[in-house]
């Protein structure tokens, strides 16, 4: 009896949060096997939605892009964030101002900044035009109209948005490195480079994993950015799974196929997360046995 209120406070919200995820996911899986078009219906069609989604060029391109974009975005955001954190950690003048500058992109919606990025990256009116007008006529920065490179403009804008967040987390990590550890390394005669690679960065590992999870989440759910920046183009070269899901469900009025695309996307994610979890589990087991 005494524990009733706490059970209520712990379990009710947690169960609601967990239940909506389980139920919504299960619902999506179920719908992916039905003939749903404009409205969800229960007519079972087997794997038909999956075969038709997998046959589209949109899905193939989006799937490849997920890896290019996901990999590029996570790696470059992490690197930029780390670089910024290390630089700012050098007793830089105006640190507070700089920190705010690097963080602000996170505060502004891509519905807004995506449009501005599409101007900046456009060779006819953005960075290329500016440099050309300054006299360097041969300068080219036209990734956004290049089918091969366009996905990297999405990476660029994504890094711009998230790098400050990675920086803040990593900077916090740098600042909490034990001073003794550094002193000991100095006595051993380690130079700045060795100091970072051998002593400091290894202690940042847990924070990096946390950053990784958040960045992975951002990469997979990226949607507004592409819609505002390239509209999925040139052609259909910058499609991403989240866009394909939305496109089938709401633009094409094929909810069943959209759900199938969503399930394929979640399965891909599991393909990344499950090995990670197994690895962690195995390591813990080994540590426990040792």
């Amino acid at each position: 009896m005494r524990r009733a209120p706490e059970l209520l406070v712990i379990w009710v919200p947690l169960l609601l949060a967990a239940a909506h995820i389980v139920v919504f996911t299960a619902w999506t899986v179920w719908i992916s096997f039905t003939a749903s078009t404009l409205m969800p219906v229960s007519e079972f069609v087997g794997l038909r939605n999956y075969t038709s989604v997998l046959a589209t060029r949109n899905w193939k391109i989006a799937f490849d892009n997920l890896f290019i974009f996901g990999g590029g975005f996570v790696a470059f955001t992490m690197l930029t964030g780390l670089l910024l954190a290390i630089l700012i950690d050098q007793r830089i003048r105006g640190e507070n101002v700089l920190r705010s500058i690097f963080l602000y992109p996170m505060a502004v919606s891509f519905v807004v900044t995506g449009v501005v990025w599409s101007w900046l990256l456009n060779p006819g009116m953005g960075v290329q035009k500016l440099v050309n007008d300054l006299g360097w006529a041969g300068f080219r920065f036209d990734w956004i109209v290049d089918r091969e490179m366009a996905i990297w403009t999405i990476v660029l804008a994504g890094v711009w948005q998230a790098a400050g967040f990675a920086m803040a987390l990593l900077l916090a990590g740098l600042r909490s490195v034990e001073p003794d550890l550094i002193k000991a390394a100095q006595i051993d005669g380690a130079g700045p480079l060795r100091m970072y690679t051998r002593v400091i960065l290894p202690t940042l590992w847990p924070i990096m994993v946390a950053v990784l999870v958040i960045l992975l989440q951002m990469a997979i759910t990226t949607f507004d950015l592409v819609r505002a920046l390239t509209g999925g183009g040139p052609g259909i070269a910058t499609q991403l799974p989240a866009l394909v899901v939305y496109d089938f469900m709401f633009q094409r009025g094929q909810i069943g196929r959209g759900a199938a695309a969503a399930v394929l996307m979640l399965l891909t994610l599991l393909g990344v997360l499950v090995p990670h979890a197994l690895f962690k589990y195995a390591r813990r087991r080994r540590a426990a046995n040792a």
Partner: peptide, 19 residues
Amino acid sequence: QENGITAAMIDVLTEFVKN
């Protein structure tokens, strides 16, 4: 056409123009 067919056809047209 309905949106599903339209979008599939426009995919081909826009890729053709850009490639």
